[in-house]
Design a binder for these strands. Structure first.
Lengths: 221, 221
DNA sequence: CCATTACAGACCGACTGTCTGTCGGTTATA
DNA sequence: TATAACCGACAGACAGTCGGTCTGTAATGG
């Protein structure tokens, strides 16, 4: 049967289906026919709304990353929060979907880190590497003025921190057991203190007071 | 016509052809037919030597990375070289093909960083992230004993340095003009000094004395 | 104010070309 | 004579195309 909907609604239907399928079977492992039958539309319809399969992926990434960066930006601009805590919360806002119980794009991040999704992984990595440091660096500069941090290279330090964290806490990249993971986190915090020129132990105490068992432990599902 | 060769020779012929084609057109953009006609063999022959197209890529990566890590390891074990210089030379040994004018696997690294080669990029990244720090960390420990370095986390620091350098100096990941690139390198050196606990400016001077215009400037082709 | 026409754009599904991987058979070598 | 290298026709699956259909809406005319 033939059901006509508004373009925007149909597009989102397709994206939702693709989101779930890519998560389950990966981008290469998902055929356009899979998407077609899941949404219940014909081939032509899909290609009426998207110009290619990769175009679907790009739209999915766009939908996800704009939410992610937007959430982080919102927190970054709230100058009432102390700098260290603000950085932490901005980072956390990015990991956990869009913050408010968003229904879509929710699963994407959990399934990105898979060999089949290498291209998607790379594209998101690029967005993070280029998008996150500009958001967090102003907070670091604020911290420098307050005397909490001390570095001549706030942007580059932040960049290094983001890239490292994003790579090392990727299950597929570096396999770790629970204990090794914990020691990595400790070392990471110490290294961040050195890079940002924070007092030794200052980040550790804030993290414990703030997050407890959360913090940087994403991916322990 | 039908030419019979030893398995090893044929395998390398196929790998050499694939190396060049993947470099030119990417993994996805290269069809098995491209490889077939380039080598001058039939489909069955290719699948007699390799079980899949991805298997070819894996063999290519294996051939390349074993040379790369081997060259780095050789330098790392030469304790006659001062620690800082040894780290530098070990890193340089990895970037520049296999060191001695090897004919094969020569091009791979120059073309890895392309959207089409996301999977290959990811696999090599994984090898670097997991393979390089174990080679370089002993040198850092040596440096700590000598008082050149000072860090409670030599492995994790090295890991952070490697991951960052490998990502940031990737043309596809972060687009940079010449000037920005230079400032990134300066910041990078300063941050490495902080992470390893080296004296401020100590790495800079060694790099200048040692490499001049080389050092970390891979990819300025 | 209703009926008719015109149009845009959402939708369809058969079809095409291409690709990877298979398989039974053939030729060379030890 | 057995093993291994080699061949190429073929099957199955896939992404993307294209001519054509349906539907809601807006303009036109009585």
């Amino acid at each position: 049967m033939r059901i006509v909907k508004e373009a925007e609604a149909r597009r989102n239907e397709i994206l939702d289906a693709a989101d779930e399928l890519f998560g389950q079977k990966g981008f290469d492992g998902t055929s356009t026919n899979d998407i077609l039958s899941k949404v219940g539309i014909a081939r032509g319809t899909l290609y009426h709304h998207f110009k290619s399969k990769e175009d679907i992926m790009d739209a999915l990434i766009e939908r996800y990353s704009s939410k992610m960066l937007g959430a982080a930006q919102a927190i970054a601009l709230d100058t009432t929060i102390p700098v260290v805590e603000r950085i932490l919360r901005a980072v956390m806002a990015m990991n956990i979907s869009s913050g408010n119980g968003g229904e879509s794009s929710r699963e994407i991040m959990e399934h990105i880190h898979r060999p089949q999704n290498a291209l998607m992984h790379q594209k998101i990595q690029k967005i993070i590497v280029n998008g996150v440091p500009p958001i967090l660096t102003p907070i670091v500069r604020e911290g420098i003025q307050q005397g909490v941090f001390n570095t001549p290279y706030p942007y580059e330090s932040m960049e290094m921190i983001i890239i490292y964290a994003n790579t090392i806490f990727d299950e597929e990249m570096v396999e770790m057991t629970g204990e090794v993971r914990m020691s990595r986190i400790l070392a990471f915090i110490a290294n961040v203190e050195r890079l940002l020129g924070a007092e030794v132990g200052s980040l550790m105490s804030v993290m414990q007071a703030f997050g407890g068992d959360r913090g940087d432990e994403r991916g322990n599902e």
